[in-house]
Design a protein around this nucleic acid. Structure first.
Lengths: 330, 330
DNA sequence: TTGAAAGCGCTAACAA
DNA sequence: TTGTTAGCGCTTTCAA
């Protein structure tokens, strides 16, 4: 079937030089004549040589590995992952992935990253306790994405969620809405900030707060919309949902109950999922590529010894107007 | 900051035995007295020793690594991933993950898995050509999930998509529908089979086929529903969508156009995403945990030398009746 | 510019 | 039952 893959040694023999020289050439390090370089490269290509990352990792002083933990079920994490791969390569780092799922918790995901001697950790929306994050942060550079952390031993890259929701509310108020409900994110990362943004904005406009418990999935949106439909109070004229998935649940439930969006009720999501673009959902966009690039930059900067890289990078969100918001009916 | 992590050597010194013995104990291999075993374990615990997987992988004859490639943006892949982690552990295998994204193609994802000397590959819904899959399959055990492959050098685990769609159509016909549209999956994995299931079923019932080009995201559903709404022909009384995401697009577009589901139009999805459960969508469920377990089992069987493990395992889908199907209006 | 040699932390014969 | 020893495939001084 397989047959051993060629090693440095094989390439060296084939090219008639020492292993050390091959290593130098493969790594693109200085110290080999152009002639040798060419010959080695030719041999390597001919044999189909590919360096063994395990051995490389073991031998090198540095692993140049960026450990990234993510939630397997979060589309937003997938977007960021893509950006991390993109940014890591030119910086000379490899990415080690570790997923957490309902049955494989974050702790295990992180432990496995640590076992592989990742030099820094990028944690996407971690639910881990502040205490544990701080412990990790004292051990190696840790970049927490999409969640604020007070402890200064970890770095944070996140969207200014509070501002995002404030902008959403401002937009609705501008359109003439006064009865605006927030379907919140419960204990999800970022939920506190978005809730605060809503409250601050409503108070600022002198409007009464109406918050419904929600969460980060469609089902939460469905449930919240149902309480809105069946509750004793009148329907609001607008809803700001925790995220796009939640908004989809709200949208769907309202539409199917004969409530027109945005005719009767305006709706704003959060994230700018691929989804929202095509459901024509007004939403607050998080800049995933920029968040990813910043996370990698921060990790690399810390690794390069910039101890005092700024603790937190807050990236501005962008209100994206589409078809689910309009003036109130009355 | 860090300080070197303890090695086998450290544990050996601390316990006053040789490295070999520690290795034996840590691996749980036979050949150490209970007393020694206990002492070594105690030392390891005290020092917080964790084996270095790179070194272990390098030294071992076998890596016991199952390489898994997946699409970062596919929720269904996430479900399967979870099952793979679950099944791999008791089988004594580790899982190496490699994501493909729009900017990091499957080829790269697979190469990196190969570099890490994975013993077998589990490819989730690969778009790779049959030719390349066959080449891979001759090199090491390869299990392709959720897509049929004729070439017998790879193993396949998939849902009987044709039967799934046939069941969906049968259900609609039973309810009295005669004008049933299929919004298909275009070139997506599984699309051919589902389309065939639709055609076979419609022909079997003596009904005319109406297929609309679709795809695997909400946007495809939205687009297809729009052509349905604006086209010259009458709306069908039922729609079978390629998958749940596509169905959500259809559902949303119809609802917002004032078309009641299932009052005016019945709708069936495919996959049984988390999503569909809470949008109360009638759908065809793929059994992700079972698919995952079967994929791991197959890979392990092939690794254990069962060359002739059956080429293909087809898992029955399950029509799941919920609230988006009902009798036609007339 | 090149090569020899010593590790990286582990496993697995083999010998004691 | 235990210890010795030789790798796994690479990087990285240090000499030549």
């Amino acid at each position: 079937m397989d047959g051993r893959r060629p090693t440095l040694e094989d390439v060296a023999a084939h090219a008639g030089v020492s292993r050390a020289l091959v290593s130098i050439v493969i790594r693109g390090a200085a110290g080999a004549s152009d002639a040798t370089r060419e010959r080695v490269l030719a041999s390597a290509a001919e044999l189909g040589y590919r360096p063994d990352p395990r051995a490389r990792l073991l031998a090198r002083r540095r692993t140049r590995l960026l450990g990234t933990s993510f939630g397997a079920h979060y589309p937003f994490h997938a977007d960021i992952l893509e950006g991390i791969y993109l940014a890591a390569e030119p910086a000379g780092y490899d990415v080690a992935l570790s997923a957490h799922t309902p049955s494989r918790d974050e702790h295990r995901a992180v432990e496995s990253l640590l076992d592989y001697r990742c030099e820094a950790l990028i944690l996407l929306g971690p639910q881990t306790s502040e205490l544990r994050l701080a412990q990790l942060g004292r051990r190696l550079p840790v970049v927490v994405v999409a969640r604020p952390v007070r402890d200064r031993s970890v770095n944070v890259v996140r969207t200014d969620d509070e501002a995002g929701v404030r902008a959403a509310v401002a937009h609705l108020v501008e359109l003439g809405h006064r009865d605006i409900v927030h379907v919140d994110g419960g204990r999800a990362p970022g939920a506190v900030e978005r809730r605060r943004g809503y409250r601050v904005a409503m108070r600022g406009h002198g409007l009464p707060e109406r918050i419904r418990p929600g969460g980060l999935t469609e089902e939460h949106g469905v449930a919240a919309a149902q309480t809105l439909l069946s509750g004793p109070e009148a329907l609001p004229t607008a809803v700001v949902a925790f995220n796009d998935r939640c908004a989809v649940g709200v949208l769907d439930t309202l539409s199917r109950a004969g409530v027109s969006v945005p005719g009767d009720v305006s709706l704003v999501g959060y994230d700018d999922d691929r989804l929202s673009r095509h459901l024509n959902l007004t939403t607050v966009a998080q800049n995933a590529p920029r968040i990813a690039a910043q996370a990698v930059d921060t990790a690399v900067a810390r690794l390069d010894g910039a101890e005092c890289a700024s603790h937190e990078t807050v990236i501005p969100p962008q209100l994206t107007l589409r078809g689910t918001t309009g003036p109130p009916a009355g």
